[in-house]
Amino acid sequence: MSAIIQVKNVSKSYWRNSLEIPVLNNLSLEVQEGEFLGLMGPSGSGKTTLLNLIAGIDRPSDGELTVAGTDIAKLSESALAKWRSSHIGFVFQFYNLIPVLTAYENVELPLLLTSFSKAERKQRVETALTIVGLGDRMSHYPKQLSGGQEQRVAIARAIVTDPVILVADEPTGDLDKKSAQEILILMDRLNKEFKKTIVMVTHDPHAAEKASRQLHLEKGDLVGV
């Protein structure tokens, strides 16, 4: 196995009214290809910030960040957007589905950034929705689905472009126990059966148990590595 994510001496701080607020301090870690990493830690520990950096939606203040063989800290904004569309699948706590689009259209959205034909897109969307067990709910709008179903649509959207890495920020945080369990089983399946590298931020120790490795963050530092 090789490291698909390499974080070297990465620091990140935010500025608020000329006051520098450090979030990550000179942090280093590696995630191997096919690994399921659980990032845990209290609120404000910097775990979501680390996830955002790995996903390429935020930039480090300092340090090197190589994801899927690309030094993403050096990419221009448009190149980074293009990179995200082909390498990263996002799963958010509150699903972040577009309410005015059906399940099918939500899953199709990332494919509109690719050169796939309409027929190819249809096939991929149907496959992704079938994998998450919602092949019969394609024409439903998010408000017509339960929370667990919405999150499964969001997962279908995350995997439809066949990205190498899935990043999930508290994917079970808004779900009841049963739905949360279903989502965790699904993610486990994506990791084991479809060989997706997964980085998941969670508060829930039960959820973190599904991960093949757990890391804890506290005040911007990795602890107990």
Partner: peptide
């Protein structure tokens, strides 16, 4: 934010 994170410019 979601659309931007998916890669829309």
């Amino acid at each position: 934010g979601t659309m931007r994170s998916l890669g829309f410019s």
